[in-house]
């Protein structure tokens, strides 16, 4: 279980700095698909960076199975939004996927098999020897996902991973993620600003406020599995849940606008 307790993150600066997150608490169950959604300007990326161990919280604790996180944990993998920069452009697709595997102590043959499997999983078996720049944006993000899968993480952290691809590719990647999750049972923490995406993918959706961010509410998504872009999104329950999340976010933006004026 991933447990976040009373998290606070303040960046130093004039006038006491900028507090991105304050008093944030929630728990993610093993194997759960947990999405964090909120208005732009909320400290979503900050939150993910803290969970991933990439930046240290100012106060509060983050723990995985009772062990506090104080640096990137071995059993976590991250998929960044900026695929063009998270892949090593000088390495072939296969080498990119293989890069983090050496630490697992596996021999070369089983490493290569893991790479092949992961690439087949994301539908890129034929692209193993290409360089990232020869692939489209969506394909590059598939490579990043393959890299994360091959790493066999307990928790997969995704920071707006599909925000920079076109709508059709985005739908494909969402379904790929659902399939991967079905097969591996990985816990996934997913940040997005897209309400439809959050409802479609998740078991639970956490709505966060604008900075200093805290959890506003957590909405359970009891939609049936397997999910389907057309069938699931046509369900009246989907529309209802979507309206619930969207409505709450709009309320928050509106309240903030009034407070500003």
């Amino acid at each position: 279980m991933l447990l976040i307790t009373d998290l606070e993150k303040t960046y130093p600066g004039p006038n006491g700095g900028f507090t991105a997150v304050r008093g944030m608490s929630f728990a993610v169950q093993d194997g759960e698909m947990f999405t964090i959604v909120g208005p732009s300007g909320a400290g979503k990326t900050t939150l993910l960076r803290c969970i991933a161990g990439l930046s240290a919280p100012t106060a509060g604790t983050i723990s995985i199975d009772g062990v506090p996180i104080d640096g990137p944990p071995r059993e976590f993998a991250v998929v960044f939004q900026d695929y063009a920069r998270s892949l090593m452009p000088w390495m072939s697709v296969a080498r990119n996927v293989e890069l983090p595997l050496v630490k697992h102590g596996s021999d070369a043959r089983s490493r290569r098999r893991a790479v092949e499997q992961a690439l087949a999983e994301v539908g890129l078996a034929d692209a193993a020897h290409k360089k990232p720049f020869q692939l489209s944006g969506g394909m590059q993000q598939r490579v990043a996902i393959a890299r994360a899968i091959a790493y066999r993480p307990k928790v997969l952290i995704m920071d707006e991973p599909f925000a920079s691809v076109d709508a059709q590719t985005r739908a494909d990647l969402e379904d790929l993620l659902l399939k991967v999750r079905e097969e591996t049972g990985t816990t996934i923490v997913f940040v997005t600003h897209d309400v439809d995406e959050s409802v479609y993918l998740s078991d639970r959706v956490a709505i966060v406020t604008r900075s200093p961010s805290r959890i506003d509410r957590i909405v359970s998504i009891p939609l049936p599995h397997p999910r389907d872009q057309i069938v699931t999104k046509s369900l009246p329950e989907f529309a209802e849940l979507r309206a619930q999340v969207f409505g709450r976010i709009r309320e928050m933006v509106h309240d903030a606008a009034l407070a500003d004026a």
């Binding site: 993998a77 991250v78 960044f80 890069l99 983090p100 630490k103």
Partner: peptide, 14 residues
């Protein structure tokens, strides 16, 4: 050096 590149290395323990 790109921050995402270095973060990637950190996350995957390279």
């Amino acid at each position: 050096l790109d921050a995402t590149l270095l973060d990637t290395a950190r996350v995957f323990h390279v």
